[in-house]
């Protein structure tokens, strides 16, 4: 913003030129932070993945964080705060991935426990039969 004030010439024509220049610069500045549409899409996909991986049940804290962050990202997109939107979408993506990985890990561990118990029962039965 201060760049527009660098010129001390006060003639209306020059001021006008300065304004145009400033607007151009502003727009250029805006163009350097484009809307993170791809990042938003990735974040949404990851949140969906986390939900279908059982995140609701097995990783509720991480999934909640991811959803909140996605929410924040969308809010930022609405007010065109693209930097904030990208940051939040990135966090939503990584938290959703963590939620999915945690859910899968918990499920796998539960399955392992079930199978272990199963084998224990089978072994006991076998031992009893062999006595």
């Amino acid at each position: 913003m201060s760049k527009t004030k660098t010129h001390s010439i006060s003639s209306p024509g020059l001021q006008r030129i300065g304004l145009v220049f400033a607007v151009t610069l502003l727009m250029a500045g805006c163009a350097s932070v484009p809307p993170p549409s791809a990042q938003m899409a990735v974040a949404k996909v990851e949140v969906n993945n986390a939900m279908s991986a059982g995140g609701n049940e097995y990783a509720p804290v991480q999934l909640k964080a991811a959803m909140d962050e996605l929410n924040e990202a969308e809010k930022a997109m609405a007010v065109k705060d693209y930097e904030q939107a990208r940051a939040m979408a990135e966090r939503a993506e990584v938290d959703a991935k963590l939620a999915a990985a945690t859910a899968r890990s918990v499920k796998a561990q539960k399955a392992a426990e079930t199978v272990k118990a199963d084998v224990r029962v089978l072994r006991n039965e076998l031992d009893r039969k062999q006595q």
Binding site: R91, V94, D95, K97, L98, A101, T102, R104, S105, K107, A108, Q109, A111, A112, V115, K116
Partner: peptide, 18 residues
Amino acid sequence: QKVAIAEAVAKQKTAEQD
């Protein structure tokens, strides 16, 4: 968070191997 993901995936794979 990525470190946490790596750890969770490792746990998942361990359990699957189990």
